[in-house]
């Protein structure tokens, strides 16, 4: 039986990752997602709603908002991974890959690794745009870099949910629909936009353990100072949980599609 060596499999995956990254650079929709989307959210919440939500102190609100929006951007960008895989399957290029003597894992690994480019770009750009609205990192370069690494890790743990939904849903649009149903409540039921003390008790209880809130808290701590340890443990637990639950589900669904 002919097999494909690990080094060949790695090369196939890297070629696929290059494809994913090259497509991201050329795709106008990705530009909208990475540039326009964070800018719109910043204008909307920092300038338009910020004063009303914070009761006038919009600088303090921007300090709270930008670390949270980094999490929100990561959530939105993770949708693209499942959509891209679903598009490959429905448009037929998957069949081309499957009929070629290449590693079966390459299309999946390539998409996920290639998407690290989008994940990194969206986190960095959201932080960078925050500067235009008066946000400043006050802790230092090392905590900031640690925070970026943590956020990329968070995106990576999220992408398995996206991959799983991408393998199950029939069409790319359906993938987007399902994931938005998930993203909206966990984003708006979090401390990205409001403080949990302003929420009714039952909602505040959820908001305090919501992974999005915990990540937002860690971002705030690492970028502008404040407690990090407690929320970091919670966030890491959630990230591990996503991987433990959704990575096997995603792989099983992928193998069924790839067979």
């Amino acid at each position: 039986m002919t097999t494909i060596s690990p080094s060949r499999a790695l090369r196939h995956s890297m070629l696929m990752a290059g494809r994913t990254a090259a497509k991201s650079v050329k795709n106008p929709a990705v530009l909208v997602e990475l540039v326009i989307q964070p800018l719109v959210m910043l204008v909307l919440f920092s300038l338009v709603l910020g004063g009303a939500i914070s009761g006038g102190d919009s600088d303090a609100y921007t300090r709270q908002l930008v670390p949270g929006l980094m999490v929100y951007s990561a959530l939105l960008v993770s949708v693209g991974t499942g959509v891209a895989l679903s598009t490959d399957i429905t448009k037929g290029v998957f069949d081309r890959f499957r009929s070629m003597p290449i590693a079966r894992s390459a299309p999946l690994v390539g998409t996920v690794v290639g998407d690290l480019f989008r994940y990194t770009a969206c986190i960095v750009l959201t932080l960078g745009f925050g500067y235009l609205f008066g946000f400043r990192v006050t802790t230092g370069v090392v905590p900031m870099l640690l925070d970026l690494v943590l956020m990329i890790g968070f995106s990576f743990s999220l992408c398995w949910i996206s991959v799983w939904v991408g393998m199950l849903a029939g069409k790319p649009e359906t993938v987007q629909g399902y994931l938005f149903i998930l993203i909206m409540p966990i984003s708006f039921g979090s401390t990205i936009f409001v403080q949990s003390s302003t929420l009714p008790g039952w909602l505040a209880a959820w908001t305090d353990i919501n992974p999005v809130s915990l990540l937002s808290e860690v971002n705030r701590g690492l970028l502008t100072g404040g407690p990090v340890g407690g929320p970091l443990l919670g966030a890491l637990a959630w990230m591990a949980g996503f991987v433990v639950v959704f990575y096997p589900l995603a792989m099983a669904a992928y193998k069924r599609r790839m067979r």
């Binding site: 494809r19 490959d88 037929g92 081309r96 009929s99």
Partner: peptide, 17 residues
Amino acid sequence: VAVRGLIGLTGQYASVD
């Protein structure tokens, strides 16, 4: 894998990106 090394496939729908 050996079979895939010998064949080419063109379907009714274009299998390209």
